[in-house]
Amino acid sequence: MAVPKETVLVLDCSEHAELAEFYAELLGAETRMGSDPDVMEIIGNDGVHLAVHRDHGYAPPSWPRPDDASQAHLRILVSQEDMDEAEREAIGLGARPLDTKDNGGRHDVRMYADPAGHSFALVASKPPR
């Protein structure tokens, strides 16, 4: 039997407090200092658990990569009827659009870069529970 585990996606950045606040506001979550002073956690009531780590030598990723290599990104599920509002919210918080064309219906996927340059997607899905 497997030992119970939790997973936390950790994003590197140069300004961890600012990036933590970006994701907390975007996801309706809260921030708290991690056990390491270079780590801030983003915790939400609906199971959201991310962390950001201050990396003093951080260089933002590029998207899309010229060689079409896979790259990790967050997928944030949003009901189809809320996609436009979620896009306005993300941009208002400092996200940079990468590819935001409306792909229509349940296949609508819109890509952005967070303030530190990590890519994330707003993805049309069934309404959140």
Rank of each mutant, 00 (worst) to 15 (best):
M1H: 14
A2W: 10
V3K: 11
V3E: 13
V8Y: 11
A17C: 09
E18C: 03
A20M: 02
A20C: 04
F22C: 00
L26V: 01
L26F: 01
A29Y: 00
E30F: 03
E30N: 08
T31M: 02
R32H: 04
G34R: 01
S35M: 14
D36H: 05
P37D: 06
P37I: 05
D38P: 12
V39A: 07
M40I: 06
G44C: 02
D46H: 00
A51F: 06
D55G: 03
H56G: 12
G57Q: 15
Y58L: 09
P66Q: 15
D67T: 04
A69T: 14
V78T: 05
E81L: 05
E81H: 10
D84R: 14
E85L: 05
E87Q: 15
R88D: 13
L93V: 07
L93I: 05
L93T: 09
A95C: 13
R96C: 10
K101P: 05
D102G: 04
D102R: 08
H107A: 15
H107R: 13
D108R: 09
M111I: 13
D114S: 01
D114V: 00
G117Y: 11
H118I: 00
H118L: 02
F120H: 13
A121H: 07
A121Q: 12
L122Y: 01
V123Y: 12
A124L: 03
S125L: 07
P127N: 08
P128Q: 05
